[in-house]
Design a protein around this nucleic acid. Structure first.
Lengths: 246, 246
DNA sequence: ATTAAACTGTTTATGTGATTAACAATTACG
DNA sequence: CGTAATTGTTAATCACATAAACAGTTTAAT
């Protein structure tokens, strides 16, 4: 397991104030005063890290490598960010910056579908995202914009904010599992289903996993496309809309 | 970001055979022949790692610390496992071992709901799970048993294996995000919603995030409980069942 | 039984990667 | 103009994963 270090303690929560790291994450440009003009910036750091991750994988994103790409020493980075953790957090937000704006004239269903599809494509372009513990990464401005658009697609729905938030959350999570499968199919030449079946046959006991064996004995394993999961969630939303309000 | 190193390359996929690591993951006891009787085992290693993670957090799970707990040197561990990555994979599977068996007489809806709830409770007991990239971790026997039970709850449903798999996957992922929120509420005394709202107010521009601002201006933010997400997915399943088959 | 292969754990060493501390150069504010 | 703030550098730690070589133990084959 490589590059899995994303702890939640990156941003100690100040009660009244916003932490320094958060301010950086949200692109607050420090009003510089004295000292030499910086040759690198938070942005250039993140950009280099992004290129590195895309070209050589997340495990190649080390402070030293990033610094090399910027023609400076690793320690120079620390003048702009607090830790590598922060860099990864910034990186996680950065990938959301490239997502295009969504047309605003779609209905909620088409809108959410499109919203999800764009996310899937974005994640496919940066598969190393799966190696980050996205569930516990603070929200940055780019993802915020994206979530904003998600809320936008549901603006006319009679749901609470929390409900809408959960729906977006669910769809985002679905993206993760969907992309994982697609990446495996694309990169590894191996079918995860087939692999699982093989492992089960070689190592497991039929009696221990009766339902699993039955499932894989199913002649039509079928390959659920990415439509399936989205539509299921959307159907759930639909049901919610028509549910008698309590 | 700490302890996030779980790369997918842990188990190089042998085409016809099952990899050594996989065999260990599935508890194949090596038929020992010569040499001294081992004082430690894969199981004892995993068990120590589990205790460490539970008591001191995932970042404390180093080869050295685990070895200390077992009264041996770090290198001794390598006689039983290939790498730390493998240890983390084993650990991820290990936590699923404690989940109780589910009653088999529940309908699919109650069954899946119970299945999800047990998972949530399990994850709450080992919150460091969130720091592992579970999406890209190979399946072990304990999680397999659990998935088996998941399939069991749907045994009477007229869905393809792939569809059932996606449903379980979705519910599992949902568990992660749900647990994250619950852990934050439990440990940090801070409400993630409130935190988000604060960050937005301090750092973001109303014009940039109109929908998000509107959402948070909603007088009734309401707190969506963990019921909501599950029920939404279940409603989606329900809709799928009644959908005219193509 | 004897030998040698296979196996376990140890010691030693290496390399990497994050991060701290001390330093030198630069620039703007007073 | 000088001083304090700011930037990048160099040198030094420290933790950690892991490789290599070694010594003792057990058993299978002779």
């Amino acid at each position: 397991m490589a590059e899995t270090d994303v702890s939640p303690e990156v941003f100690p929560t100040a009660t009244s104030e916003v932490s320094e790291g958060m301010r950086r994450l949200w692109g607050q440009r420090a009003t510089r005063r004295r000292g030499p003009k910086p040759t690198i910036s938070v942005q250039s750091i993140v950009e280099s890290a992004l290129e590195l991750a895309d070209s050589e994988g997340l495990e190649s994103v080390s402070m030293a490598r990033v610094a090399d790409a910027l023609d400076c020493t690793a320690m120079a980075l620390y003048r702009h960010i607090d830790s590598k953790d922060e860099l990864l957090t910034l990186l996680a937000d950065r990938v959301a910056a490239d997502t295009p704006n969504l047309p605003t004239d779609l209905g909620w269903r088409d809108g959410l579908r499109a919203w999800t599809r764009v996310q899937i494509e974005g994640a496919l372009a940066h598969p190393w995202l799966l190696q980050l513990p996205l569930v516990s990464t603070p929200l940055g401005p780019h993802r915020a914009r994206w979530i904003d658009q998600g809320f936008g697609t549901m603006r006319d729905l009679d749901l609470t904010t929390a409900e809408k938030g959960q729906i977006l959350n669910l769809l985002s999570l679905f993206v993760l599992s969907e992309v994982r499968v697609q990446v495996e199919l694309r990169d590894l030449t191996i079918n995860p289903f087939a692999e699982l079946a093989q492992v089960i046959h070689h190592l497991a006991d039929t009696a221990d996993l009766p339902n699993l064996f039955a499932a894989f004995a199913d002649p039509s394993p079928g390959d659920a496309d990415d439509i399936f999961g989205v539509e299921l969630i959307l159907d759930g939303v639909d049901a919610l809309l028509h549910r008698p309000s309590t």
